[in-house]
Amino acid sequence: WVPTKREEKYGVAFYNYDARGADELSLQIGDTVHILETYEGWYRGYTLRKKSKKGIFPASYIHLKE
């Protein structure tokens, strides 16, 4: 896992994603996520609506905010 280059990196989910394991994070369309790390097509972070739950999710489900 590699920390993100920018201190504040955010994105928005444009697909729903159902977590398949305890380390994964479920997403709903429109969720804003804070991205902490990246690795081979995956991000690690949390949604702003539930900051206490961190997990991994596919990068392809996220539109990055500039």
Rank of each mutant, 00 (worst) to 15 (best):
W1S: 07
W1G: 08
W1K: 08
W1N: 07
W1F: 08
V2M: 11
V2L: 10
V2F: 10
P3K: 06
P3I: 05
T4F: 09
T4S: 14
K5C: 14
K5S: 14
E7S: 14
E7M: 11
E7L: 10
K9Q: 13
K9G: 05
Y10T: 06
G11D: 02
V12A: 02
V12K: 05
A13S: 05
A13P: 02
F14I: 15
Y15D: 14
Y15I: 15
N16D: 10
N16P: 12
Y17M: 02
Y17Q: 01
D18S: 12
A19T: 03
A19Y: 01
A19Q: 02
R20F: 05
G21H: 12
A22N: 10
D23I: 05
E24L: 05
E24Y: 05
E24H: 06
L25W: 04
L25C: 05
S26P: 04
S26A: 05
S26K: 03
L27D: 00
L27A: 00
Q28L: 11
I29T: 06
I29Q: 07
I29G: 01
I29K: 13
I29H: 04
I29E: 07
G30M: 04
G30I: 04
G30L: 02
D31K: 02
D31N: 04
D31P: 03
D31F: 08
T32K: 12
T32E: 14
T32H: 13
V33T: 01
V33W: 02
V33Q: 00
V33I: 04
H34G: 07
I35M: 12
L36Q: 07
L36R: 01
L36H: 03
T38F: 12
Y39E: 02
E40V: 07
E40M: 13
E40L: 12
G41V: 05
G41E: 06
W42K: 00
W42S: 00
Y43H: 04
Y43P: 00
G45H: 03
G45L: 05
G45C: 07
Y46P: 01
T47Y: 04
T47L: 15
T47Q: 08
L48Y: 09
R49E: 11
K50V: 12
K51G: 09
S52I: 08
S52F: 13
K53R: 11
K53Y: 07
K54D: 05
K54V: 15
K54T: 14
K54P: 08
K54N: 07
K54G: 06
K54F: 12
G55H: 04
G55T: 03
G55F: 03
I56E: 00
I56D: 01
F57Y: 01
F57L: 02
P58T: 03
A59P: 02
A59H: 06
A59C: 08
A59T: 06
A59E: 04
S60P: 05
S60T: 09
Y61D: 01
Y61G: 06
Y61T: 10
I62T: 02
I62M: 00
I62P: 00
H63M: 14
H63V: 14
H63D: 07
L64F: 09
L64K: 00
K65T: 14
E66C: 14
E66G: 13
E66D: 12
